[in-house]
Amino acid sequence: MKVRTGEKENTATLVKAVLFLAALVSLTIASLLYFKMRAVVAGDMEKQEYTHYIRHYAFIADNMENNFWEEVYQGAKERGEETNVYLEWFGSSVAVKYSKKERLQSAIAAKVDGIVLEADGSMEMLELIDEAVENQIPVVTVMADSYGSKRQSFIGIASYNLGMEYGRQIIRISTKETKKVLIIMNDDLDDNSKNMILSGINETILNEGNHLTLDIEPMNVSNDSTFGLEETIRDIFMDTDNQPDIIVCVDAQGTISACQAVVDYNLVGKVDIIGYHITEAIGSAIQRNVLSSTIVVNSRQMGINSVDSLNEYIETGYVNDYIVMDVDAVTAGNVREYMKDAAK
């Protein structure tokens, strides 16, 4: 009996020892696991698994700060994700700010699978596009085309249509006192586009607003120098003798600058502005009646179309040569709907 008690005690000791050992090991493992977790959170240096894409497209447009292009890019990028294509705003990660042409050159050298390009009518651009196509890189131009180039497709607003819409807006807000209409045109637009827009405006006013006697004056603004656009617009308002009654902006950046200048020079109600594109700032300007109206194109859809066109060309070898995007006018009456979209 006594011996059994002794054995029981021995077993108890053994059990205790084993429990202690288990506690020890589990504590150690727990601490180490905890540490591992913390360490991974603290310094994630492990090679991550990235999504693999089947193609790599380069997106080359004027600049990233531009709201319009930002939206086009986002639309294209999302479409790319859906179709397993990596879309890169080419040159955005480089320390030097390269021009569009330089970026196009690099994209060709980098042998990307496709290029979405905001082209212009210059000869160099045309040559570069042709070089890309010769190197089996399909090019889709967006918004601004390069006529005569070997680009696969163009997605854009017909400039004449745009001019017609501007014309309609000018007629809508013009009174008998309205004399001078200034149309601020960005250098990004090629001459052809500029002419098309102008003729669109002129012909619309001639056809639909023949009761008005308007002096329509186009103004070219260089976008090459920093803050050039902003300063040029301010200069217009400084010249009090020669102030226009209506200012038409054909790009988003110009629209925002003009709105700000009108407010700063206390000319709200005296100078009407017709803008381009819609952002939160532009929308709120319409709501505050600083901006009479703005012409919008579905920029996201534009991006989506560009990627789709490239995909289509690469997969089938054929694609529409020209895809036209519709334009709409946003006024105080319908700004809410567009604001929601913009907020998205």
Partner: peptide, 22 residues
């Protein structure tokens, strides 16, 4: 040389391809 969803990797790829062209 792969098309992966990382900016740096894409840059690496661009550098490689550009260097090849060079």
């Amino acid at each position: 040389d792969a098309v992966v969803g990382n900016e740096n990797m894409i840059m690496e790829k661009n550098i490689r391809r550009m260097s090849e062209s060079y």
